[in-house]
Every structure is written in structure tokens, then in C-alpha cells.
Design a protein around this nucleic acid. Structure first.
Lengths: 354, 354
DNA sequence: CTGAAAGCGCTTACAG
DNA sequence: CTGAAAGCGCTTACAG
């Protein structure tokens, strides 16, 4: 006598089979109704709907994604694991991916030369789409590789919109303008500016926003001392030193990122300026260093976690769009926030010496 | 003539079958390795692991959850999203979870009072186990809530082993000893120490390691000036100020974390010390600030990403262990590394004034 | 408009 | 210690 093999106990109480049996149709028909396909007789459709309601049936997402070709694997290419930025980004990405049932595969691309290898690994793992975090989305080598591979991609925090690729970013120019207007509202008229890395598009945008706000306030660009920085603390130190080498001293320094602003604070202290009493200093990005140094930095905050969540959704949407061959890549703009902390204050009556 | 039915095109290029074929075993064996079942010959296990790595295979969460009743939902409770620590941790967690097909649900617990709510949310989402990141693993309220909920948990970077819970950490005392011995090897004999937050267990451990190394070198604890800090930059600034207020000045300052060490560097510069020529300064943790300030900080590095990966594995293991009702929670110790950068140097012949 | 068959990638339950 | 078989709940691809 053949012993009956025990039926596997399922996690799910009501399945598509139960609904089908209840109506007296095949599971296929139920599947069609669930997926809103048009080729089902209206009356049958109604019966199925009724049964679904009666039995309180919910389709299993696991089974659907296994059986179907719903895109659900997302590659995430990043550069440096120990930036403050990445933490919040990963958080948002992780959060949204678990909510939508997508799977995120992360891969490091430390040097642009590694782009091909890193991308190859992700493609071999079967990703449906790709997310590029900064600064990879500005590296030509990386972009070329992505194009060559023909993979659907979303660039986060890249400097400018793209025809080739969907992007998610903030308006760097408007943000720099907002921050500069705040400094103007504190009475500052003598400015120093520490420029960002010349290779990054955001550097120009931030500078332009800064100059635009000054122009609107009737301050001539020639009256502003600008020094080249490269986004590193070290470069900020050197730029600030040049900025504060001789009179007339600025009463406010705007650095194109937080690391350079933190360096400027440190250098100002070193040569005898009080911050913000003698000198206001502001940064950009709101990375962890901005809140930890003292005085804490006035800066611009990007909604990084929200942008990461949006990136997950957007890449899935782009994959679908791409398969249907319709429309153009979407360009998303997220809101920035001016964060006022202790490193900025009312302008001193006269620019102060060191 | 029967036409061959077209094989369904799959989303996933590398499957358990490919790995199995690559090694020359059955998919079952690969499955066993993935699920860390003990009944696989070690050599086979190694071969499978190698193949997984070579092929960059990631199990499909959909298939796993559909087929089995494997625990695969992991809750991750964190505190502050914008610490440098979290970035690397998330990275490791994401990496390992996608590799093992586990799903990580993240939830923020900003205040210990929110522990119940945050935990409730995760439990309702059906997590099988929980990971606690620092500093949550030391908050009594949080631990009490975890115990009350009866959920299997793993504490990361908590100060000491626990009977109630699995832990993953580094040996803080040994690490502090290593760093201190390095300073001693540079000829330093006059030390200052900035203590960590008194509520954190690691503070005592780091202090003890520091003092133990000094004792071994024949330096009396009374000759060392110690100041209370609270892990914040601000507290480091104040502690360093007291440390450098009067002669005899130390030639080396060891701060219990990087933020305080960075603050000490800034203050030292402010009052005329050159770092490291007049004064060496070292930190602990190797957070982003350590590499970004100038001079960059000599410090102790924790393998954060590796610890996160281990946490994912360990929590799944603990869930299984718990279900079987055997053994005690595992206590894992990870290796630390001394990172020598520019903030430390050979001791000056005589302690130098400001 | 409808359904039987095969399969998605994995695991459970069984047998060696 | 290892594997062949069956099945998880659904969809694709085909045939009427």
C-alpha cells in the first residue's frame, strides 16, 4: 500500500485555487481577474470578485514575483563606504525595498576603472535596474560603462538632468541662493567663498546660486574673495587661510561643502577669530560633521533618505517604462532645507581683524 | 513532431541549480549550505561557498519564502541615522541580507521611550529576529522591552557579553592597550586622557586598556591627567582645554572616541600647539571625521561592515537555536585594527608649552 | 473567453 | 552526508 505523501503545510490559508474552486473556474481565470486582463467575461469576473471578497483572499507577493517577470532586483553602486551620506541613503533604500519586496544588491566601485567589473558582477546577479550614488553618477567612465551595458539606471544627486537617465536631485543653485540670502539677512556684506571641486557639476551650481543672491542684493562679484577648494577638509583649511590672510576680512564665509566649512572654523579659531561673533561660516550638505563640530554648522540639508526611497521606486518604474518603450527618463527634484545652527550670526559692525 | 516548449525566461541568471552544477552536487546540498545546516561535509561546503562567490549568486527571497518556512525577516533597530557608523553598518547588513535572501526591516528608535512602539511595529511586520545597533544595545529601556517581547536579538558593539542575548563586538580594552603601546613606542611618557560617556560600558573598557598599558610600562596612573568627556565634540573641546591649561603639558592625548580627538586637535591648534610635533592626539572608532580632519587621526578601526554581516548571520542562527531550545547565545569577538595617521608622532624631547 | 501544462527558484519530507 | 521527488502560489506560453 502506497503511503500518501503528506501535503506540505502552507503559510497561506486562502489561495488562488480556493477562489477558483469556489467559483467553479480554473485558477487561470482568477489570475486574469487579479491582473485586470480584459479577456474575461464580465459575469465571470464579477463572480470571481465576489469569491475573493467572501474568502478574503490576498495574492502572495512571493509567488507572484517568482512566477512572473515583475522587476525586483536592484543594483546599487556606491563609492566610499564611510561617508556620512551613505548611511542615510542605505537606510532609505533598505526601508523602501523591504516595503515593496524589491531586493537590493550593493556593490562597491572605488575607482572609475572598476566600473566595468562592478557592473558586470551586478548584471550577472540578474539586476533589473541600477542606482548610482554620488559621486559615481558624475564619473564619465562609469556612465559610459552603464550606457554600454544598456542597463536601466537612476542617478542620485547628480548635478544636472539627463536625457539618457532618470535623476533624483535637489536644486543646488536655489539652495545656495537660500543660504546666501540668509547670510545677507544677518547683515553680512563682505563675503568669502570656498569653491568645490572643479570636476563636480554641483560646484558650479552652488557658486552660481551664491553669486546670484549677491547680485540681487547689489553686491559686486569683484568684492567677493573666492578661493579654490576640492571638497576635502585639507583643501578647506588652505582656502580659508588664504581668505583670512589679509584685510579687509570677510564677515562671512560660505564653503561649498561641510568638510571645508568645518576646516574653515578650525582655521579661524587658530588665527584668533571668534565664530560666529567675528566671522560667520556656513557649509553645504548637512553631513555628520556639520552637527558634531563646535560651533555646529549652518548648512543646507538634502532629504537623503527620502531620495533613496524615491530612487528605489523610480528605478522599478523606469524598468517598466523601458520595457514598454514609452516616454523619457523622469527627472525628480527634491526639496532642500536651510539648517541654521551656531556657526552663523549677525554681522559685526565692522569687519574684524585676527 | 512535437515542438519543444520554450523554456521560460527567468529574471535571475544565477540560480541554485547553476551553483549546484558548478560544484557538481545537487541543489539540495547548496540549499543546505545556504541555510547553514550542519550536515554537509566541510569540503563540500567550502566548494559551494566558493562557487557562490564566483558566480555572485544571491538566493531569491521570493522563492525561499514561497517554498519554506525559513526565518528570513530581520528587524534592525537603530538610533541616529546620520552617524558615520551607520553607513558602513547598513552596507554590510544589506550586502549579507541580499546574499542570504533575508529581508531586513529597519526601524528608528530615536528615544528609549519609543522602544516599545518601534519594536511593536517590527513584530507586527512578522520579524523572526532583531538586531540592535549601538547605542541602543546599552539602553536599559530598550533591553527591557526586547526581553518583554521575547524576541530573539543580537546586540552589536555592546560593551560586554550577555547571557540573555547574542553579541558581536571588539575587545575595547585590548584595542585601547594597542593604541597606548603604540604611543609609548613613539617615546611618549606624559599622557592626557579624555574619558568617554560615563554611562557607556566601553568608556571604562577603553580607559582600563589605556591604564593597563601605562602600568605595564611603569608609568604611574597619578602622573596621567584624565578629564571627563561625553563622546561629543563639544565635550572634547572642553576636556582638551582643561588638559592643556597648565604645565606640565602632556605630549600625547588619547581621547575615547574620534569626535573628542578631533576637537582636541582643533583646540590644540587654537592655543598654539603643533600636532603632532608638540602634541600627539589619538582617537577611537575610525569614524569618517577621523580621516577627514587634518592632521588625520590615528585611531582604532572596528570592522563595522563585517560585524554587520555577522549580525545578519548570527540572528538567523540564533532564531534556529532558539527554536531548537539548545545552547546559549553566542558571543562573537571581531578583530580591531590600529590605524596610524598623521595626528601622532615621535615624542618631543621635552614637553612643550603653548 | 477559458483552461491544462509547465515552470519560476527554492524547500520540505522522505529515502538511502 | 547526499539526492530525487513533490510542492509552495502564482504566471507565462500555448491551445482551443
Amino acid at each position: 500500500m502506497a503511503t500518501e505523501r503528506q501535503r506540505r503545510k502552507s503559510n497561506q490559508s486562502v489561495t488562488i485555487r480556493d477562489v477558483a474552486a469556489h467559483v467553479g473556474v480554473s485558477p487561470m481565470t482568477v489570475s486574469r481577474v487579479i491582473n485586470r486582463e480584459s479577456n474575461v467575461k464580465p459575469e465571470t469576473r464579477e463572480l470571481v470578485h465576489a469569491a475573493i471578497r467572501t474568502l478574503n483572499y490576498a495574492p502572495s507577493p512571493a509567488a507572484r514575483s517568482l512566477a512572473g517577470s515583475v522587476p525586483c532586483r536592484i543594483g546599487l553602486l556606491y563609492d566610499n563606504p564611510s561617508t556620512g551620506y551613505l548611511g542615510e541613503f542605505m537606510l532609505g533604500a533598505l526601508d523602501e525595498s523591504s516595503r515593496t519586496g524589491a531586493q537590493v544588491l550593493v556593490e562597491r566601485c572605488g575607482e572609475p576603472e572598476m566600473a566595468a567589473a562592478a557592473l558586470g558582477k551586478l548584471l550577472k546577479a540578474g539586476i533589473d535596474g541600477l542606482i548610482l550614488t554620488p559621486p559615481l553618477c558624475e564619473a564619465e567612465r562609469v556612465l559610459a560603462e552603464v550606457k554600454r551595458a544598456g542597463v536601466v539606471a537612476v542617478a542620485v544627486a547628480s548635478g544636472h538632468p539627463s536625457e539618457r537617465m532618470a535623476t533624483i536631485r535637489i536644486d543646488n543653485e536655489a539652495a545656495a541662493r537660500d543660504l546666501t540670502e540668509y547670510l545677507l539677512s544677518l547683515g553680512h556684506r563682505h563675503f568669502g567663498f570656498i569653491k568645490g571641486h572643479p570636476n563636480h557639476v554641483v560646484s558650479q551650481q552652488r557658486q552660481q546660486g551664491f553669486l546670484a543672491a549677491l547680485a540681487a542684493a547689489g553686491i559686486a562679484p569683484e568684492s567677493v574673495r573666492q578661493e579654490q577648494g576640492y571638497f576635502s577638509y585639507r583643501s578647506g583649511l588652505e582656502a580659508a587661510e588664504r581668505l583670512l590672510a589679509e584685510e579687509p576680512y570677510p564677515t562671512a564665509i560660505f564653503a561649498a561643502n561641510d568638510d571645508m566649512a568645518a576646516a574653515a572654523v578650525s582655521l579661524a579659531h587658530r588665527i584668533g577669530f571668534e565664530v560666529p561673533e567675528d566671522l560667520s561660516i556656513a557649509g553645504f550638505d548637512d553631513t555628520p560633521i556639520a552637527a558634531s563640530v563646535w560651533p555646529a554648522l549652518t548648512t543646507i540639508h538634502q532629504p537623503v533618505a527620502a531620495m533613496a526611497r524615491a530612487a528605489i521606486d523610480l528605478v522599478l518604474e523606469e524598468v517598466r517604462r523601458h520595457r514598454e518603450g514609452t516616454g523619457a527618463p523622469r527627472q525628480l527634484l527634491h526639496p532642500h532645507t536651510l539648517i541654521v545652527r551656531e556657526s552663523t550670526g549677525i554681522a559685526p559692525p565692522e569687519p574684524v581683524g585676527g
